[in-house]
Design a protein around this nucleic acid. Structure first.
Lengths: 236, 236
DNA sequence: AGCTGACATGTAGCATGTTACATGTCAGTG
DNA sequence: CACTGACATGTAACATGCTACATGTCAGCT
């Protein structure tokens, strides 16, 4: 682990390692772990591990229990609903503003193209990386860097527990398709169209994810959760 | 410092102490400090100080510079604009939803009353605490706890550097007054009215703060900053 | 059996030792 | 005078030692 070139701090590397471990299911939600064990497994001292976990605790991914250990927080459908409610409230206006300012069309086209080739290769990590870059570009074009940062955090929080619709509810190329109307509207300078396209994309993703998580739990979708997402539709 | 009852961890106490030190100007923005010095001044070891600062770094209040120290981040008008743009996008829909659901009118009335008595006593900390509680209640009534948390963070980030309009641009009782229309609209179940009242309150605060910071710097308000705030008016 | 309390176990939280490195300084060189 | 590079200084980042405490366990008692 030591002396890995290109990465800045050990703590950051541990953060990524833990995120990945949660995604892969190596660290199970609800289970109790300790900084000691984890540090030993990663071959680093406890300090950077603790620092990484403190950071993740602040974003709500894990929780410390004094003198007992830490726990990966269990995500429930309500979390999904809240995240997509928020994303609609933030991403839709950002898209509208991006259309009104000058959207970075070339960059967006490049990311979408990269998503398509990644989809053909069935390379989900690469696909997700470009998906993320696409949305990042769009959000930054809205003119509010803090907003972009918050949405980025929301995306990471949901992805961290494998909450992805890719190749479950939708194929990768289906997802890429949903970005076309966004790009088209931006190219046309159509603010309403861009807003509508982003709204449709985000709402669709949210509802699929909600249904998927409900199915995993074997329970029906709580209408309140679906309503929370939908309530953001006419508010944005 | 040790063994302070009622507070959970040393790191959290240090977090508060640093926040307060920034507010009071004891720690000046832009200046370089070290964990060593700070730990000595607070009579605790470096570890909890470092942990506290790492947390504050994550919220953007300070920044670490490797092998040099840490710096209190300087807030510029653009930050103010971004924060209020975000608050408008989030608080206005939340108010609308709160009006449509059942707003916790009793609690809100109690907080507003407490704000009034604090205003009479010219007790700004107490006033701010109830102001915060008022907005917290309102946001939670919107039904999205994560949204409430994010807005809370945005509020904290701005007040941490004394960025308050209280008794500069407005008296405390002026600020209390601005909450009346919100409460009235909520009591009447008037969603549009509640949205408009919150929008007016937030936009007003943002513009005053922008002007105030510009005046401190002796520069005119950057139109782009004012536009960013205003752009959220017709988006929410 | 049901209860109680001493004790073993394992941990977060805190303190402190150690290391690599970014910068400022300043003598030595052209 | 300008420029270079060895060195001193101070620091974040990391490693490790220490302590109080929350919990599980289990013998001893009723």
């Amino acid at each position: 682990m030591r002396q890995v070139l290109g990465a800045s701090s050990l703590a950051e590397q541990v953060t990524e390692a833990v995120r990945e471990a949660i995604r892969s299911g190596e660290l199970r939600a609800g289970e109790l772990y300790s900084v000691y064990q984890l540090a030993e497994r990663l071959n680093v001292s406890r300090t950077p591990v603790r620092e990484a976990l403190l950071g993740l605790a602040e974003t709500g991914l894990v929780r410390f229990e004094r003198n007992r250990g830490f726990r990966v927080v269990r995500r429930d459908p309500k979390d999904i609903a809240e995240v997509f409610h928020l994303r609609l409230l933030l991403e839709v206006p950002a898209a509208r503003l991006a259309a009104m300012n000058a959207a970075p069309l070339d960059g967006l086209r490049a990311e979408l193209a990269a998503m398509r080739t990644a989809a053909e290769d069935h390379d989900e990590p690469r696909f997700m990386s470009h998906d993320r870059a696409f949305h990042d570009l769009l959000l930054l074009a809205g003119g509010n860097a803090k907003l972009a940062g918050i949405v980025r955090g929301l995306r990471d929080a949901t992805i961290a527990l494998g909450a992805s619709t890719a190749d479950r509810s939708r194929s990768l190329s289906d997802i890429a398709d949903e970005h076309e109307p966004i790009l088209a509207a931006l190219a046309a300078g159509d603010a309403d169209g861009a807003a509508a396209a982003v709204r449709a994309h985000a709402a669709h993703t949210g509802e699929l994810l909600l249904a998927q998580v409900a199915a995993e739990n074997g329970t029906p979708v709580d209408p309140a959760d679906a309503d929370l997402i939908r309530s953001a539709l006419f508010l944005s």
